[in-house]
């Protein structure tokens, strides 16, 4: 199972800045292992962020997003103590959901 994300959500003024690190190999399907064998493609295809039941960001990713992806975005309308929830889904049908409290 995939490792948890590291999510930080910080309120400055009326804007929450969310910074996410995801543990994912983001294999392009075109890279070879040390024995010369192709490593199958395996990458995150969609990312969704919600706060208080409402979408705050959605993203479609291809294999060109770097390994162990990093994502930062900013939204308004949340207060300290609100929860930001992030979900990713990948090409292998795996998914992972984690959350962080706005601080």
């Amino acid at each position: 199972m995939a490792d948890p994300m590291r999510i930080r959500a910080r309120l400055t003024g009326d804007t929450v800045e969310v910074k996410v690190l995801m543990a994912h190999p983001m294999e392009t399907g075109l890279r070879k292992d040390s024995s010369g064998k192709l490593i199958p493609a395996h990458y995150i295809e969609t990312v969704n962020a919600t706060c208080k039941g409402k979408d705050v960001l959605t993203a479609d990713w291809g294999p060109a997003v770097s390994k162990n992806p990093f994502l930062a975005f900013r939204f308004k309308g949340a207060a300290k103590g609100d929860k930001v929830t992030i979900t990713w889904k990948d090409t292998a049908g795996e998914s992972r959901t984690d959350d962080a409290v706005v601080s």
Partner: peptide, 11 residues
């Protein structure tokens, strides 16, 4: 300071 190494630290 967004170092993916944090994911290793967590694990």
């Amino acid at each position: 300071d967004d170092n993916p190494a944090d994911l290793w630290v967590m694990r």
